[in-house]
Amino acid sequence: GEDLPLPPGWSVDWTMRGRKYYIDHNTNTTHWSHPLESGPSSG
């Protein structure tokens, strides 16, 4: 998808195989999909 801006506290990194993933430092979790690309989340 597009390179959307990341929310505060997020960063992007790549695996050893070159796969892009996103790090949420607020909750110390990692995600394969961009936080703003996922569907609407409630709460």
Rank of each mutant, 00 (worst) to 15 (best):
D3Y: 09
G1P: 12
P40Y: 11
W10A: 00
S42P: 11
Y22G: 00
E37L: 14
T27R: 05
H25T: 07
P5F: 08
W14F: 14
H31W: 09
L4F: 08
W32R: 04
P7L: 04
H34W: 05
P40G: 12
G43D: 11
H34R: 05
D24A: 02
P35K: 02
G1I: 13
S42T: 13
G18E: 03
W10P: 00
H31A: 04
S38K: 13
P5R: 09
D3R: 09
T27Y: 04
Y21I: 07
P5S: 09
V12C: 08
H34Q: 03
M16P: 15
H25G: 07
T29N: 03
G39R: 14
S38T: 11
Y22W: 09
Y22D: 00
P7Q: 01
T15R: 00
E2F: 11
L36M: 10
K20W: 03
R19M: 11
P40V: 13
M16A: 15
R19T: 14
S42Q: 13
K20I: 09
G18N: 05
R19I: 15
N28K: 08
K20S: 03
G39W: 12
W14A: 06
D24N: 10
E37W: 12
R17W: 15
G39K: 12
P35H: 02
S33D: 10
R17I: 10
W14H: 09
T15H: 04
E37A: 14
V12H: 05
Y22V: 00
D3N: 10
H34V: 05
S11C: 14
N26S: 09
N26W: 06
S41E: 11
T29W: 02
S11T: 14
W14I: 09
N26E: 06
N28I: 02
S38R: 11
G39H: 12
H34Y: 06
N28H: 11
R17E: 15
V12W: 08
Y21E: 02
S38Y: 11
G1H: 13
T15Y: 03
M16D: 15
G1F: 12
E2I: 11
W14P: 04
E2T: 13
P40F: 13
T29L: 05
P5D: 14
D3H: 10
D3E: 12
P7H: 00
L4P: 15
D3F: 10
P40E: 10
S42D: 13
W32G: 02
L6P: 14
R19D: 15
G9M: 04
H25R: 06
T30W: 15
T15P: 03
H25V: 04
L4C: 07
R19K: 13
R17T: 15
S41Y: 08
S41C: 14
L36K: 06
P5G: 09
P8N: 07
Y22H: 01
T15M: 01
H25I: 04
E2R: 10
S33F: 14
T27M: 05
H34N: 05
L6F: 02
H34P: 06
H31I: 03
